[in-house]
């Protein structure tokens, strides 16, 4: 039986909501809708899911890919403009430069490296969970992560 109470749901939303939206943003322009649907789907599960966080990332990934396919058919020409208008990170205490540069660099990365980076760095998933999420081995996920970090190090100053 699904026993997700309101307090538990609120905690999950606070802890994983932002990272899930950032993760969905790697594919589509409507990440909040995708995450909302994922939580609705979670609440409609008849039984308690194993590895809740991993399940959420999997559902968000599938939903974001589907949304991306629909969007690419309908509004391909509007996507780039919409993407530039949405900040990915909260900017505070002089982090605005870092945030803007990070978004620029990440947009140039392949999607496999981007999703690995987000799931590991901001999602806090283990290597095993990242590998299961991206349908690869742990070593492949680790290699993608290191490659993405190497690109970011080159582009970021003072590191």
């Amino acid at each position: 039986m699904n026993r997700i109470g309101q307090e538990f749901l609120s905690k999950i939303l606070d802890e994983h909501g932002p990272a899930l939206v950032l993760y969905a943003r790697q594919w589509c322009d409507t990440p909040e809708d995708v995450v909302q649907e994922a939580f609705v789907s979670l609440l409609r599960q008849p039984r308690e899911v194993d590895n809740l966080v991993g399940w959420l990332y999997r559902v968000v990934r599938n939903g974001a890919i589907n949304a991306s396919r629909k969007a690419s058919r309908r509004f391909r020409h509007e996507r780039s403009a919409a993407r530039q208008g949405e900040p990915w990170f909260e900017c505070r205490n002089g982090q605005k430069m870092d945030a803007e540069m990070l978004v620029e660099v990440m947009e140039d990365l392949p999607i496999e490296q981007r999703e690995t980076l987000v799931a590991r760095l901001w999602g806090g998933l283990s290597w095993e969970e990242v590998a299961r999420l991206t349908d690869t081995s742990s070593s492949t996920a680790h290699r993608r992560f290191q490659t993405a970090l190497a690109v970011l190090r080159e582009r970021f100053p003072d590191t």
């Binding site: 609120s10 909501g17 932002p18 990272a19 609705v40 990170f89 909260e90 982090q95």
Partner: peptide, 19 residues
């Protein structure tokens, strides 16, 4: 990792109601 992803504009009330 110190950069925090932007807080989502989710419909929390709707999710709480569903919960």
């Amino acid at each position: 990792a110190s950069l925090r992803p932007r807080s989502p504009r989710l419909q929390r009330d709707h999710l709480m109601f569903l919960a």
